Computed example of a mutant assay.
Amino acid sequence: MSDAPSLPDLSFERDAIALGARLVAGVDEVGRGPLAGPVTAAAVVLDPDRLPEGLNDSKKLTAARREALAGAIHDCASVAIVHVEVDEIDRINILRAAQLAMRLALCQLAPAPCHALIDGNLLPADLPCPARAVVKGDALSASIAAASIVAKVARDRLMVDLAQQHPGYGWETNAGYGTKCHLDALRNLGPTPFHRRSFRPVRDILCQAESLRV
């Protein structure tokens, strides 16, 4: 008997299909924790006969493997990706922004899915189809794993592009997360328009700068 951890499969998708759902989408988001950049969600409907080999939670894959799988997923599946930008994150908070991104990604899928599998323990409001929340879904459902991969790759690519516009913060490697390099740059260079001002480290630096001006 092999001790290797099991990979995500289509068990949840098959359960939904058995209840009459013809197209089942997996939905996941990335980017709740960073200090900069959008929160990104993806919705994916896989073709059971053309599954890319090695689908897994994006956090368990190397960057090179994620890139390769993202290309394979786009080639054989229906995919929708949505970025919810910083101003919206600051306006409605990061949890609601992540839920909004997932709902919009699901709404943009064509053809429209009949059922959705949502990573986590909370379903976004006003979904366009029946849905099931799946805790640790990116490690259990192949569709959610695929969504986690394409969302992560899309957001990482965007942060590399933004790093070229705003050098010094290390976004090309830290993807906007609060690494020492990023925090040092925030103190020395100040926030950019792509920083989340509602997040405490950014807010504290802004408050410190304001107090020095008074």
Rank of each mutant, 00 (worst) to 15 (best):
N121P: 03
N93V: 15
A25H: 00
D9I: 06
W171L: 01
L69K: 00
I92K: 06
P193L: 06
V214K: 12
H182A: 01
V135Q: 08
L206P: 08
P124G: 10
P130K: 14
V153P: 04
E29M: 12
H166D: 07
D87V: 04
A175H: 07
I92M: 09
S148M: 05
A131R: 00
P48S: 09
A105I: 03
K60W: 13
L206H: 02
L106C: 01
R32I: 09
D47Q: 12
D87H: 12
L183Q: 05
A145R: 00
A175R: 06
R103V: 10
N188I: 14
D49G: 12
E88H: 14
L206A: 04
P111H: 08
A63K: 11
A36V: 03
N121D: 11
P111N: 09
S141C: 10
A175E: 02
L51R: 06
A116Q: 05
L55G: 04
L127I: 10
N121L: 09
D49Q: 15
Y177Q: 11
Y169M: 00
D15F: 09
G137D: 03
C114A: 15
A77P: 03
A18M: 04
A64P: 01
H115G: 08
T179A: 11
P124C: 12
D49A: 15
R66Q: 03
F194H: 11
V214F: 14
P113Y: 03
N188G: 15
R66W: 04
V135A: 13
A139W: 07
Q108L: 08
M1V: 04
L35W: 01
C181W: 06
L123S: 03
D28L: 07
G31R: 00
Q99Y: 07
E13K: 04
R65A: 13
I73K: 02
A63R: 10
G190F: 11
L162E: 00
R65Q: 02
A80I: 07
